[in-house]
Amino acid sequence: MQVSCNNVTFVYDKKDPNHYDALKDINLEISKGEFVALVGKTGSGKSTLVQTLNALIKPTSGYTKVDYFIVTSDKKLFKEKMKELSEDEVKKNKKLYLLRKKVGLVFQFPEYQLFSVTVLKDVMFGPTNFNLTEEEAKKVSIEALKSVGIDESYFNKSPFELSGGEKRRVAIAGILASDPDILVLDEPTAGLDPDGKKEIMEVIKKVHEKGKTIILVTHDMDVVMNYAKKVVVLNDSKLVKITTPHELFDSDDIEKYSLEIPTLYKFKKLLVKKGYKKDLSNVYDFNSLIEVLGK
């Protein structure tokens, strides 16, 4: 398993009298090359969970394991786990930046992280932090920028001159340039128009096709339906379901988790409700729907 969460629990600010558990006993495994969507209503703990992958947040109890990196604030547990690792791996565990290179985390509204004078320099910032030389960094950055569809005419512009969608793509390129094995995206499509949304999702799809693991936090169920292979549902800080998009949208408890049903499945449900008799269980996209309806 590339990523595993083991009994991960997290409490924000224990001393605060009205504190609450942001994560409760989460167990989750993700293997290499998977495309996982993390869904749940606002405040269900999705963002908190993905931050533990990157050691930005350390689980109060339990641990997250990414390859051989152990993330936990439980010192006893950490020591125990260290015993299971080889000497080299223990050494690497002390260098957080290695983990952060491995797990690329794209935050919600990543355009806010741009700070440099030019687009290219901003994208180069990540790779140089991960100890690449100037030239190497430049090379990977240009590649990353091209992969998100930003062409050379933009390289020397100030990132603050760009439009919202462009900024976001530059910011994503900033993460891609460090060549992470696992790409985690927190609502990459929020606030974008349909075209912008599609462009971003195509970039992510391409990255996935290169064999990278994708973990996508999203509210957009159409995105989940079209791209994800596996869905993890969080509700009230707990992990309630690990399933496929198809199964999730076909099941009846989807409304329980305050998730929106994609248009296709809404249509399917409506058909059944109005008395459509044929078997619709194999319908998972519009083509297959048309096929069934046409029979």
Binding site: N54, V103, G104, L105, Q113, G126, N129, G174, I175, S178
Partner: peptide
Amino acid sequence: NKIMKAQKSRGVD
């Protein structure tokens, strides 16, 4: 806080 986290994941210490 958010920006710091974002930059941390870009390798800033």
